[in-house]
Design a protein around this nucleic acid. Structure first.
Length: 606
DNA sequence: ATAGGGTTAG
């Protein structure tokens, strides 16, 4: 009976009798020197069995068997390293490798390429560099497998691409795998442009592209939102006859979605003969970003065509509910997640936290966050942004400190979350402290978005002059969002001179933003400069584009009612007016009405 | 008997 047959038998039990017997046989050294049944030696038998155990996910059984083998050769050790790596137990793979060295078994090229893959998985550059030096010492760094694995390990590390490039340049015979690994290295670290340049070089050097290189090339286009390059890649895919390869076409589909060409995406999807779950997930995720209700329809369509949603599907669907702010729908999705037992998936819980926060139910977010067994950086960030949006700035700040205490390294986005929280809670100096700590303690360079947050932080608190100084002294050219934040502050504090300057800077960069004229006109109105006010309004009317309309909506008994300022729609609009009157009356009663802007908006329908 | 690169979630 072959090992494979044995392992795939429906009656397979972890250690069946026949295997116990074989173990005894392997341990029996007198038989070992003279194997009676098979032409291969007992370690061949054992290695095959180890591989089968790992394929079935039976790690324990593989280890037990391995421990009973008296003479372990390099192939057996390598099979263990490969086994652990294939089920993502990278640390155990590395432990195996060090034990192997301790028992003075010489590694070969198979061992080194496998252990380098484990180093990549551990994200342990130091282990990888050690493995590199060992490979060089044993002269097995001349295998192209080892070279490609080294390239992959360095490219995936958090260091620069320099080491990866020097390995790549030293590969005498670069294969398609070498090139694909290089392209993936650039692309996965966000440099899709260099990835595409490498892809072009690969073609120029007459290395035939295959499905692997096309899918990563499409991913590179997606990462830099280059529709024109993406279309060319799609054409080349067709030319090479790979238009039926599922992973390639999923990448192409994703590219169209990320470039915001949903029509091309839908057409591409319709033409696909070989669809799989990832195909559906890609399209649903694509629509979630720009047309969430369509994303929900696709979800139902997918179910009716017999596809079973997985965690990826539910993450996008949950995000769609968040975008639409439809709480009851989100709750049903949550129910579906629990029923399927997906409620242990961290990324999925993160999207549920975000959904409840965006649907107004921050207490549900908090409950999910507290009950999570393991929180990642995204969990903390999502909860912080949720708190900030609900005006709980102090809680957001507290969370940030707790996160650092728990040993998680903050990144740029989590700093944005905490700065935003400080901004909404008026914790200006606290926010400035975090801003400084970013560079000083964590070596994170602030980008446009961070500066926008800090300008907003100062501006909301009325420290507009300071905000202006910050903008003036930025280490790079501020973009329209930074100037826009300053303009917002000028509007709130009715500073027409500075506001005019900020508006000018916004318009220099984005001449078509009608909202800029609108803000400026409001500053003039507040100062009683009606001539200037009229000029702005005239400029606005002359523009083809209108400011994107702000909308509010509410879910009542399975119906979504949406409202636009000033719109005279719906049979219930007079009720809404009555409620607003009551609200204004209450606000006046509380002495809270300092800014009657909303009434101006309301009457004018802007 | 042991080794390679690609696709979906913030």
């Amino acid at each position: 009976m072959s090992v494979d047959k044995l392992a795939s038998s429906p009656h397979f039990h972890p250690i069946p009798l026949i295997v116990r017997n074989s173990l005894q046989w392997i341990s029996n050294s007198t038989l070992q020197s003279n194997p009676p049944f098979t032409p291969e030696g007992p370690s061949v038998w054992a290695t095959n069995l180890i591989k089968s155990y790992f394929d079935k996910g039976l790690t324990r059984e593989a280890c037990n068997l391995f421990n009973e083998i008296p003479e372990r050769d390099v192939v057996t050790w390598t099979a263990m390293i490969v086994g652990f790596t294939s089920c993502n137990h990278y640390h155990q793979a590395w432990t195996m490798f060090s034990e192997m060295l301790r028992s003075e078994v010489q590694p070969n090229a198979f061992t080194m390429s496998s252990v380098l893959k484990a180093c990549k998985g551990m994200k342990a550059l130091s282990c990888g560099a050690l493995a590199h030096s060992l490979a060089t010492k044993h002269g097995i760094d001349r295998s192209v497998y080892v070279q490609n694995a080294l390239l992959d390990m360095y490219a995936a590390s958090c260091a620069t691409m320099d080491d990866a490039l020097s390995v790549f340049n030293d590969i005498p015979l670069k294969t398609a795998v070498s090139w694909t690994t290089l392209i993936a290295g650039f692309t996965h670290r966000g440099d899709g442009y260099s990835g595409l340049l490498a892809f072009r070089q690969m073609l120029l050097e007459d290395v035939g592209p295959n499905s692997f290189s096309f899918s990563i090339a499409a991913r590179a286009c997606a990462s830099i939102s280059s529709y024109s390059c993406g279309k060319q890649i799609h054409a080349a895919v067709t030319k090479y006859g790979l238009h039926c390869d599922a992973p390639v076409m999923n990448s192409i589909l994703d590219m169209y979605c990320r470039c915001n060409y949903l029509c091309d995406a839908k057409r591409c999807f319709g033409e696909l003969t070989e669809k799989n779950l990832i195909t559906w997930n890609t399209l649903i995720a694509g629509y979630e970003r720009s047309d969430s209700s369509e994303s929900l329809s696709l979800f139902f369509q997918m179910g009716s065509e017999g596809y079973k949603p997985n965690c990826f599907t539910f993450t996008s669907i949950t995000a769609a509910c968040a975008n639409l702010a439809v709480l009851s729908c989100g709750q049903q999705v949550h129910g579906g997640i629990v029923r399927r037992g997906f409620d242990k998936n961290v990324a999925l819980i993160n999207s549920l936290i975000d959904m409840y926060a965006k649907c107004g139910s921050i207490s549900d977010s908090h409950k999910l966050f507290c009950d999570m067994p393991g929180r990642d950086l995204v969990s903390w960030t999502t909860m912080m942004i949720g708190y900030g949006a609900h005006g709980y700035g102090k809680e957001a700040v507290k969370l940030f400190d707790e996160m650092v205490q728990s040993g998680i390294q903050p990144d740029r986005i989590v700093f944005m979350g905490v700065l935003c929280g400080c901004s909404h809670a008026g914790l200006v100096d606290k926010g400035l402290k975090y801003f400084r700590s970013m560079l000083e303690d964590y070596n994170i360079n602030p980008d446009q978005e961070i500066y926008r947050c800090v300008v907003d932080l100062l501006g909301r608190a009325g420290r507009v002059e300071e905000a202006f100084q910050l903008v003036e002294n930025m280490p790079f050219e501020p973009d329209e969002s930074v100037w826009g934040a300053l303009l917002g502050a000028c509007k709130a504090y009715k500073l027409s001179n500075l506001g005019n300057l900020a508006a000018q800077r916004v318009l220099d960069r984005r001449p078509n933003m009608a909202g800029t004229y609108l803000l400026l006109s409001k500053i003039y109105a507040a100062e009683g400069k009606w001539g200037e006010f009229a000029k702005m309004r005239k400029l606005m009317k002359g523009m083809n584009k209108k400011k994107e309309v702000g909308k509010s909506w509410i879910e009542i008994r399975n119906e979504v009612y949406s409202f636009v300022v000033g719109a005279k729609m719906g049979p219930h609009i007079e009720w809404v007016h009555k409620v607003i009157d009551v609200l204004i009356w209450h606000m006046k009663d509380d002495g809270d009405v300092t800014d009657l802007d909303y009434i101006v908006d309301y009457l004018e329908g802007t």
